[in-house]
Design a protein around this nucleic acid. Structure first.
Lengths: 138, 138
DNA sequence: AATAATTAGTTGCACATGCAACTTATTGCT
DNA sequence: AGCAATAAGTTGCATGTGCAACTAATTATT
């Protein structure tokens, strides 16, 4: 076996971990009391509200158990609300609260700024290409 | 802000997560009772034994608290042993047990096989380039 | 209509993780 | 020698995760 056949995968894992640490640090530096995972959920809800947990789990790429707990946390912080669906009693629809909306809006600029920084050493073409390659692996 | 400026980072996270799931699944399909994280520690130890936890934490890119618990688990499974250093009483040196050696040796082929599969859609040049880009982000 | 199969969400379990505080041992400094 | 700073490892805490079993509600089947 060629050692080169074996190397990309750990690099991706390492990079993902460092990104995660960096983003969480960005949040805490700006005194936003959220983890990156929580922030992502809020961000997706800002783009589209009134989703079921199922839909939100798919969009955020988590399994539903994981999402249940994220929503628990965000609900405790009064950033989202579970609204039982009238049509289907099994379903919750998730809404951003006013405070939740405020928090995303205020934090979005520097989160996006931080993400831009992370890829600032790469050209647009390189970014595009890398995304393609990530898709291949997936 | 250009939406394109904002997209690579989540792709990397998603890819890393899927890789992680796939590799854990590979282990359990082959009835190896290890998580990928545990396997990586064993693999590094196979390459170089008799490391301190500190060194191992650096090599495996974990903080020391996290590593302590991984070693706890592996020690319980009799795959590694903590040997107190004679020169420095603060230090543990970590050794692979016979069983640990056996487990890595037996599982290495199909772990490497699985990793190769993951990047089989990419050319060597693409792999190399992507690793370069991961380094830039880091 | 009654039963079976499916679906949304929750929960228990085991694991991994970062961070910070802590203990103990070592080294450096005065 | 004595005290301060540093280093290795452990632990508590909060968080996140997948998986599988579970509950309750809905839909499909007979």
């Amino acid at each position: 076996m060629n050692p080169g056949d074996f190397e990309l995968i750990p690099w991706i894992g390492k990079t993902a971990k460092l990104i995660h640490i960096f983003m969480n640090d960005t949040l805490s530096r700006h005194e936003v009391d959220l983890t990156m995972q929580q922030w992502i959920v809020l961000f997706k809800l800002q783009q589209e509200d009134d989703l079921t947990q199922q839909e939100l789990a798919i969009i955020t790429e988590r399994n539903k158990g994981s999402l249940t707990r994220l929503i628990d946390t965000l609900e405790k912080k009064n950033l989202v609300a579970r609204i039982p669906s009238a049509e289907d009693k099994r379903v919750n629809r998730i809404l951003l609260t006013k405070q939740g909306t405020k928090v995303v809006e205020e934090s979005k600029p520097f989160i996006q700024q931080a993400m831009s920084e992370l890829q600032s050493g790469m050209s647009d073409a390189e970014i595009k290409k890398t995304i393609e390659l990530m898709k291949i692996i997936q």
